[in-house]
Structure formats: C-alpha cells, structure tokens
Design a binder for these strands. Sequence first.
DNA 1: TCGTTTTTGTACCGTCTTGCACATAAATAG
DNA 2: CTATTTATGTGCAAGACGGTACAAAAACGA
Lengths: 207, 207
Amino acid sequence: MVHKSERPRGRPRAYDPDQALARARDAFWQGGFSGTSLDELAAATGMNRPSLYAAFGDKRALYLEALRRTKDGLLAGTSAAMAAPGGLKANLELFFGKAIDAYLAGDGEARGCFVIGTALTEAVGDPDIKAILHETFTGLDSRLAERLERARAEGELPADADVEALGYLLSAAVHGLAMRSRAGEPREALEGWARGAINHVTSLRRA
Amino acid sequence: MVHKSERPRGRPRAYDPDQALARARDAFWQGGFSGTSLDELAAATGMNRPSLYAAFGDKRALYLEALRRTKDGLLAGTSAAMAAPGGLKANLELFFGKAIDAYLAGDGEARGCFVIGTALTEAVGDPDIKAILHETFTGLDSRLAERLERARAEGELPADADVEALGYLLSAAVHGLAMRSRAGEPREALEGWARGAINHVTSLRRA
DNA sequence: TCGTTTTTGTACCGTCTTGCACATAAATAG
DNA sequence: CTATTTATGTGCAAGACGGTACAAAAACGA
C-alpha cells in the first residue's frame, strides 16, 4: 500500500527545523558565536543538546548554516528592493528603510546586522566565514551597481557617473547603519544618515 | 635625601605596561573578546595571570582599556591626516592609506580595525562598549565633516555640498575597508574602493 | 502485540575557563 | 643585615564549556 503521508518511520520531531534555526540565529545575533553557549542555544530553540547536535551538527555548523541563510535572505531582499516599481530614489528608500527596520527589530536592544555584527569577529583564521562575508559584500555591491547602471542608462544619473564607486559607497553606507544601530544609535539618527546618502546619490550632476 | 630615581619600593616589574597592553590588544584583535582566553593573553604578554590581574583588573577591564586607547589613537590619527599639508584630496589619500596599512598590518592574516572587528560583537548589553563605539563614530564623523567644511569654504567642494552627509559617507567608506580587509579582500581591492570614494568626493560639481 | 526506527532527555566525561591563595623572589629603607 | 614592600609563579578551586553515551519514549510496519 502506498503511504498517504511521507512521515518517516520513527518518533516525530518535537521542533520545526526552520524555526529552531531562526531561534539559534537570534541567540548568536545577540551574543556572537564565541559568546553564545550550547546551553543558551538549547534554551533559545527549546531543544536539548543532543537534538541540536543530531539536527545541525556541532556549534560551528549551526552557526554557518544560520549565516548562509541570512546572507541569502539579504541578497534576495536587495534584489527585490532594486527591482521594485519606482525610480532609483524610491528603490534606495525601500532598501535603506528595510535595512533599518531589520537592524532595530526585536524586543530588546538593537542588534544591527547578523552578518556584520557576528561574523567579522570570527573571520580571522576561518576561511568558511570569510567566504560568506565575501559573497555578502560582492553580492550587495553588484546588485547596487546594476541598479545604478540602469539609472545611468535611463538618465537618472549623470552619464559619467562611476557606478562601481557609488555602489561601494551605498553598500558601505548601509553597513555603517548596521554598525551604528548595534552601537546604540537611535532610529532618527540612522534615518538621517540614510536620507543624506540617498539624497547625495540621487542629486548628482555631471562633472 | 631626595631620591635620584622615582622607582617604587618593591620588586620591579618584569614587563612594560604599555607594551603588555599592546600585546594583549593584538591577541584580542585576532580572536575577539569572548574568543580570547586569559591563557592566550598571558602567553601574548609574557605575563602570568596573577600579574595580568594585578596590572589591569579582570579580562573585561583589560579589553576596555585596549579599546579606549585604540579609539584615542584612531581619532588622533584622523585629526593629523586632516591637518596635514595639501588639499582635500591629499588629506583623504593620507587618511585612507594609513587606514589600509593598519588594517593589513601584522604577520599573518589581515585583521582589519580592532574596534570594528571586535567591539561590535560585544556591544549588545554592554553600555561601556557602546559608549566607546559611539565616541569612535562621532569623533570620526566630526573630524571628516570639519575638513570637508574647510574644503567647501576654500572652494574645493561645491558651495551647496552637504558636508555632514559626505562625512558620513567617507566614514562609512573607511569602515567598509575595515570590514572587507578582515574578510580577506586583497590590498588592491581595498585601494580601488578607497580611490573610488576619494575621486567621487573630490570631483563633485554643484547641483 | 511485537519489533523496528527515530527522537528525546538525563546524565556524564574530559577539558578549558576565570579568578585567586599562597609561598617565593627581588628590590628598597634603615 | 633585617624588615618592608611589591611583583612573580605555581598551583588550585569552582564552575562553564562542548560534545556524547545510553536508556526511555513515541511513532510506524507487520
């Protein structure tokens, strides 16, 4: 007889893997990789250590998986913001606005960006983390530069605009917000810096 | 009789406090605060744990002292670069060049900026670290904005240039280099981004 | 009902961690 | 030379840490 459900043979899981990974990411997000113990991860996910280990491997593998997922989400969100209807300024406002919301999300203190706030510290001596950081940076750069190139072609930017340099500046600008939000800067300050960066780029005149 | 030397009464120290603090900073710089043990700090400084404890207090106090000194040095170096002879472009080239040299310094892998690379992770829940981060960011912003304002007054920048926004962008640009160097980007890439940012700012025309 | 499979939960192991107690060493003061 | 002062170095205590062994539990197949 064919099975109606594909439920596997043994005892069912007491947790949802995606949700558990998100909770573990939240724990790492707050305390960093080295600063978060397996006990805290178990408490955050509601799982006990052996289940964590069976589901995700060791602490580092769990962290790397959370990091990869976050990177993919960041890049997908950036692509979506750049493809949204409206001109360059509207796209950038959406992009920076979503970023600020993410950096200030959560109940307690602002945690900034998960990647920037936790992976940089662990990067020295860890090629896997370095690779994820590299993909995050270059992925963001290229998506921003592509959108700026389109704006240049459509006349929203000067014909001689250096879209690579502008892409780097905007990328650095949003990462600056990630850092400063984690350092405790209030939303109004973050929004002011974002507004300044967007206005600067969208009011350029030809040299 | 008046003492010829001011050497205190007891057994002399076997270490130089400034040098020990610098070595401890280097250890933290590589592994972060949580990722660096007292054993590693003792090995790096050549001191044993009780001497470390007597000299600097506990691990956190040692880290905070290293962080404060680094922040003060960063701000002093920025002031110096902005006051160096030459125009805006020369000052910015000096500023970015010194930053890149510092980010790539050391024998092994690049470690980026000590403050950015280690304090961000520890900032959540730690008001002291947040305060040092805040002083670092605002100190850098204001020094850059001051120099840009002078350039504007001297005609090197358009009269309607938003020096606050440009100061934030340049600050974010150099912090971007700090992040990317720690992520493993080669010197040539860092220099390219720096050149793009400097050229962009120093070739602005009035809107 | 009984065996099989998979997950759960307790309990544990060896190691590393921070921080300190205490005896010893090296200097000065008299 | 002796007392005093300060720093050193061994060594330890109490607990946190990452990771796992093992038995009980909860599902399915027959």
